[in-house]
């Protein structure tokens, strides 16, 4: 087990190096002027385009640019992001807690709701519950997240004045900025707890409701469908029939024997989904104004913010690799038959 983890961790730097080379290479298809366009916001600045190109070494060769970049990265400097107006590493560090809080808040409801619906649908196959779940899944799976989010925003927030945008109400954000409340972790809910302020925790939770509702409605359908089809297979297998024949209660058969065996693909899916969530849920972050990684990575990609794009790519590589590792370990826990030898 330990050797397995160590070996997988040793592969990480190679993966990251490959990603950086790939992205760096693709950026070279642009001319220095096109890359400099990212730095120019007005006619006045376009006036000095040549200076901008020289200032940022945009006219040097591939290996020179890559070499300088790599040397800096090894020193812990991922460069300066034009879109966030600060060093890339600072931005990532600042935005990870925001995306992580959102990801965690989303992950458990999505998984729980998806697994619950999947189980219900499989057990009640072709009966009314199954039909309802199916319609639900089709409707929300085909509804664009963006549309659902804006619709919830307009109805719940704009019309009924419920919940709220951003991570917390303005006065709490100001209190954090002023230092009246100390930001220990960057998670609003946990920081509220550490500051001994239940109202802050509560406000943080309330502001998570809309994004979580949006994502849960949309993303749980996927989990549900995978679990349902797997569970149907398992429910038809011999050992389930044997268990039933032994006279085990229906509940134990379904949840302990059938579901545990059907859940392995859900674990795979869940791991990737968590990585995806942690990378920043772009729609939710934009609509509900969370200053997370998703919002930043999309803006920086549009504006050709080179250091930010490559920084995000490295982070994504890191998150996905670790999530995959976690999934592999989870297999062993869920299914003792899987070994790491």
């Amino acid at each position: 087990m330990t050797t397995f983890i160590v070996r997988r961790l040793l592969q990480l730097p190679i993966v990251l190096l490959a990603i950086s080379l790939l992205i760096f290479g693709m950026m070279q298809f642009l001319t220095p002027t096109q890359r400099a366009a990212a730095f120019v916001k007005s006619e006045q600045q376009a006036q000095h385009l040549d200076l901008v190109i020289r200032q940022y070494n945009l006219d040097k060769g591939f290996w020179v640019q890559y070499g300088t970049w790599l040397k800096e990265v090894v020193r812990g400097n991922l460069g300066y992001s034009k879109t966030s107006h600060e060093p890339v590493l600072t931005t990532i560090r600042k935005r990870i807690p925001i995306s992580a809080e959102l990801a965690l808040a989303n992950f458990f409801p999505i998984m729980a709701f998806g697994i619950w619906m999947g189980t219900m649908a499989a057990i009640h196959r072709d009966r009314i519950i199954d039909q309802i779940v199916r319609v639900f899944a089709v409707v929300f799976w085909s509804l664009p997240t963006f549309v659902l989010g804006i619709w919830l925003l307009a109805v719940l927030y704009g019309h009924y004045k419920l919940f709220g945008i951003d991570r917390a109400p303005t006065d709490i954000l100001v209190a954090f900025a002023r230092g009246d409340l100390k930001a220990y972790t960057g998670f609003i809910t946990i920081d509220g707890l550490l500051n001994g302020r239940w109202d802050v925790v509560w406000a943080g939770v309330k502001h998570l409701v809309m994004p979580v509702l949006t994502m849960t409605l949309v993303a749980s359908a996927q989990i549900m469908r995978v679990l349902r089809s797997n569970m149907l297979d398992v429910l038809n297998s011999d050992y389930v029939r044997t268990a039933r024949a032994k006279g085990l209660p229906e509940r134990v058969v379904n949840l302990k024997h059938a579901r545990r065996n059907a859940i392995i693909p859900v674990v795979t899916l869940g791991g990737l989904m968590f990585a995806f969530l942690l990378n920043g849920i772009f729609f939710a972050e934009v609509i509900f104004n969370f200053a997370g990684l998703g919002q930043w990575s999309v803006t920086s990609a549009i504006q050709l913010d080179f250091p930010a794009v490559i920084g995000m790519a490295l982070l994504t590589g890191l998150i996905v690799s670790i999530a995959n590792l976690a999934v592999d370990i989870l297999y062993g826990i869920v299914d003792p038959r899987i070994s790491f030898q």
């Binding site: 927030y157 945008i165 609509i287 104004n289």
Partner: peptide
């Protein structure tokens, strides 16, 4: 006493915030 200039990229979100009084 306090001024906050918030960056809210999505126009629909800004409009709803105005409507909600935020």
């Amino acid at each position: 006493k306090t001024v906050i200039i918030k960056v809210v990229d999505e126009q629909a979100t800004r409009i709803q915030a105005l409507k909600a009084g935020d």
